[in-house]
Amino acid sequence: MAPSSSTRGEDVYQRIKVDLVSGEFWPGSKLPFAMLTERYGSSASVIREGLSRLVEQGLVRSEPQLGYRVAPVSIRDLKDLTMARCAVETQALRLSLQHGDLAWESSVVAAIHALERTPVGTQPASADPWPLVHRRFHEALLEGCPSQRLINTALGLRDAAELYRRWSVPADDNGNRDLNHEHRAIADAAINRDAEAACRLLEEHLNLTARLLVERGLQEGFLDESELVETA
């Protein structure tokens, strides 16, 4: 039986998204329909639908008369994104600790167990399992939150941040931090229902990631050093 149009659309959307966050397309680069239809073996309408969904997530930009392009990266945007993530994720986490049940606790325990046993950056970006396991851990933390809209907002901001992380993978494993320790501390505080500690640790985790991403972005040349003065 041939796959339905909705199934094909979802498959194309997921493939484009994976390629975006794995760094297959340079930030700010154009996404011409001719290239995309050939690359993904799909119609322009299916491609357009997938790109529209990615625009909503902040991974792609739509420009009138010019088409679509990969979302550009900048220090200003990263700071704004990190501020938004800190506000939204900590609120969702706080509610998750208040409302999460035993099944939620078990999910967090399983997620941190898997994360601690998955090495960072040992495989090419497109095949690296760590980002998915990492995302699963942060999702698990929030799943006790009774507001699905708040969870969806938090995960959407996380998707937008993935562009930065993928273009600066060494920042997560450059000897300046112990990711397992950071994640374990957040998980322990969450399981112990210590909302103040859990939210503080999560915010520190997000801000440290942003600072290291700026350092790596300046080294690799995809962030503009002049922005440091503008955003100070």
Score class of each variant (00 low, 15 high):
T7S: 09
L150W: 13
E162C: 04
W167A: 07
L81G: 02
G58F: 11
S96M: 01
V109F: 09
G217C: 11
G41H: 00
R193F: 14
A34D: 11
S106M: 06
L97W: 10
G28E: 06
I47G: 09
E204V: 15
N180K: 05
I16E: 04
L66T: 04
S226H: 15
S5D: 07
D172S: 13
Y40D: 11
M1K: 04
D159N: 09
A232H: 14
S6D: 13
S126M: 00
R166N: 06
I47A: 13
R15P: 04
R94L: 12
S22E: 01
Q65R: 07
L202V: 15
E89S: 04
W167L: 11
G217A: 10
H113C: 08
V133M: 08
A44T: 14
A140E: 04
K17M: 05
E56R: 07
L202K: 15
H134A: 10
E143Q: 07
V133L: 04
Q91L: 10
R39N: 10
D172A: 14
R61K: 11
G50V: 01
A125P: 00
H181P: 01
V88S: 11
E56Q: 09
N176P: 00
V109P: 00
L155F: 14
L201M: 05
Y164E: 08
F137P: 09
G9F: 01
K79L: 09
V169L: 03
A154Y: 09
D80W: 05
W104P: 03
R135Y: 02
L163R: 03
Q123H: 00
V21K: 01
L95G: 07
A210C: 06
R53Q: 11
I75E: 13
P119G: 03
G156M: 03
G50Y: 00
S106G: 08
E63I: 14
L81C: 06
T118C: 05
E10P: 01
L36S: 02
V88T: 15
A125R: 00
M35T: 15
Y40A: 08
P131W: 00
R8N: 12
E227R: 10
N192V: 01
A185Q: 02
E49G: 12
A114S: 06
M83L: 06
L157H: 04
R136P: 01
R211E: 08
A195Q: 09
R48E: 12
A111E: 12
E225A: 12
L142D: 02
H99E: 02
I47T: 15
P146L: 01
W167T: 14
R177Y: 15
L201A: 05
T7N: 02
E10S: 11
T37L: 06
V70R: 10
A210F: 07
G23P: 00
N174L: 13
L95H: 12
E10F: 07
A197T: 15
A210M: 11
E10I: 11
V108A: 03
P27C: 05
A189S: 04
N180W: 12
D101H: 06
N180I: 06
E215S: 07
E105T: 09
R136D: 14
R69H: 12
L20H: 07
D101T: 12
L155E: 15
H183P: 03
V60D: 03
A154N: 10
C145V: 13
Q98S: 08
P27M: 05
Q219N: 08
I112K: 04
